[in-house]
Design a protein around this nucleic acid. Structure first.
Lengths: 329, 329
DNA sequence: CACTAATGTGTAATCGGTTACATGTAATTT
DNA sequence: AAATTACATGTAACCGATTACACATTAGTG
């Protein structure tokens, strides 16, 4: 592998000049630039990123930490982050935490040691101190789908409450009178917000009762089980709002297996907007702009890395109702 | 951030001794070890991985390159690779190529520059020269779901042909007499093998005809369209084998929408064994040991990095029939 | 007891870059 | 014409580790 010294020698200039040329900072004459260009071409020289990082303190690497890469929501985020990263020459380190706080903590240590430039994280177990620690090592953090109130942390959130309201109102508009709700883990703020949105919207119809809510875990299996218990306690249900698409899919599955027609007898709507084209009926949902969120996360983290002034410390994304068959009249 | 020099100074030994202690090579006295341990604790010292990499030539990073992280098959692989990597202190760089040969080539350049220790790749566009190039830079490569004949490359393959046979035989065993096939991209060897398996098994029943095969692209939409055209040309079909689960799901969707009952009227089987619990009916499939493949890939690449002798240059994994509702009698 | 082998430690070169600082020349200002 | 300022380049320190080599001490062997 050719080094910068080889280039400097062959081009008849100093390593400093080559470095300046490479980084486009400082002055380099036309002639020198020409000579260097030729030598680089000839030697097929590529700067060594490791050495660059050691000297320059930048690794051009960001980590993406997600609770569960098997949940389709996160590959979609990963896709967006990776896209944006690749475009600007950054590289993405994938960290899957399995919702395990220990693994997460261990990863944070590792990432500090590897001196990643920034971290994009979606986590419900991370604590403000951990973020502070990262920031102390001057590793900027962008939080997705979560926020620490009052903390100095950039966070990206969808309008969960508004989405919950929209979902419920949509069901009502489609003629539902008795709407059950499958809510996600209560330790997840976004999840709680969606449920609050449901309650808020539903209470305006005057028939809300707590037993219409079942508590689940964001999985297909969880949604399936919840649907069955909802059905048992409220056989006259005609609509269901699940706090994420996977649970909604589980609910639809339970209904179909029970011989209950969706949407004729019971309409179902989810939340997230992940791609699940294989479903029949296709699922209506409150879609988060997942790709945009991932892209924005990457842009923000890079802005933070470059110490550019950031407009907002916390950004809220609008959600959109996607009407598919599962809530057709 | 404390450096090795700080530690050596405080512990009253040389940096060499600290380094020896850290890497457990060379001699270090009990007393020195004790002193160093204490200082490390006190300073909360962590070795700088970048510097380590520069001097030691190892980055403890492997790249995982996949064609499409949105295809559920790859998150499952990623999960396994990440698990195995994390266990042994390696870190995973995610590279999504979008099936784009240019992006792939560009990535390979980047990875060489970043001096990753190894590459695990699933690609249908990569060329032997590119692998050779990586190897020239002493970056070992493990190929998944693909193989270069005669090349000196470790590759992991499932028994695609056997799986194609098993899928077809299973349909026959379940009473199907006229079985259509939705095959994947012909430039993918594994895909071709599955189709060959289908033909081989089917020909033994004596009724095979080329028009039973439709050519598709491994997507839900592709499977859906293929199913519809199959239905048009062969209304009397009673079984379908799709070369991957996504296409099978698309086929099931088309059938349900057409009011054709699965499995009563037409049975459907897929290939891969990805998790799609939300489906109704649940999909029978020929499951690859995805997790094991990912784990093995990681183990192999690490063995190659450490220059350990590897048993096999190419390893074949058995597949397993998973019977679910979509092929029930 | 002399002699080799094992143990323990430090010095300094090295990995491949970046960049502060010094120096020199050409172009502008005043 | 003298004083600035912009342009161009080189020298060498530095980033934070690893490791070859030299040297000293202790243990083991014949």
């Amino acid at each position: 592998m050719a080094t910068i010294k080889d280039v400097s020698k062959l081009a008849g200039v100093s390593v400093a000049t080559v470095s300046r040329f490479l980084n486009k900072n400082g002055y380099v004459s036309k002639e020198a630039a020409q000579a260097i260009t030729e030598v680089i071409e000839k030697l097929n020289y590529r700067p060594n990123n490791i050495a660059r990082s050691l000297a320059g303190k930048k690794t051009a690497t960001v980590a993406l930490m997600v609770p569960d890469i098997l949940n389709p929501f996160f590959p979609e985020i990963a896709r967006a982050v990776e896209d944006a990263a690749h475009e600007i020459g950054y590289t993405v380190m994938l960290c899957n935490t399995d919702n395990d706080a220990d693994k997460e903590a261990k990863y944070i240590e590792t990432l500090i040691q590897k001196q990643i430039d920034g971290l994009i994280i979606s986590s419900y177990t991370i604590k403000p101190e951990q973020v502070a620690k990262l920031q102390k090592h001057s590793i900027p953090v962008v939080l997705m789908d979560n926020a620490f109130s009052g903390q100095d942390i950039v966070s990206l959130l969808s309008d969960n409450r508004g989405g919950g309201i929209a979902a419920t109102q949509h069901l009502i508009a489609q003629g539902c009178r008795k709407i059950g709700h499958i809510c996600g883990p209560m330790h997840i703020a976004s999840s709680r917000e969606r449920t609050l949105g449901y309650e808020e919207a539903y209470k305006q119809t005057g028939q809300f009762m707590p037993s219409l809510i079942t508590y689940s875990d964001f999985t297909v299996k969880g949604g399936y089980d919840s649907m069955i218990s909802l059905l048992d306690s409220h056989p006259d249900l005609d609509g269901v709002f699940a706090s994420n698409d996977l649970m909604a899919a589980g609910a639809v599955k339970a209904l179909i297996e029970r011989g209950i027609h969706v949407p004729a007898e019971i309409k179902v709507i989810g939340f997230d907007g992940i791609h699940m084209e294989m479903m029949v009926p296709e699922l209506s949902t409150i879609a988060q702009p997942i790709y945009e969120i991932g892209k924005t996360a990457m842009n923000y983290v890079v802005a933070l890395i470059n110490q550019e002034p950031i407009e907002k410390k916390s950004r809220r994304f609008d959600v959109a109702l996607i009407e598919k068959q599962s809530t057709k009249r």
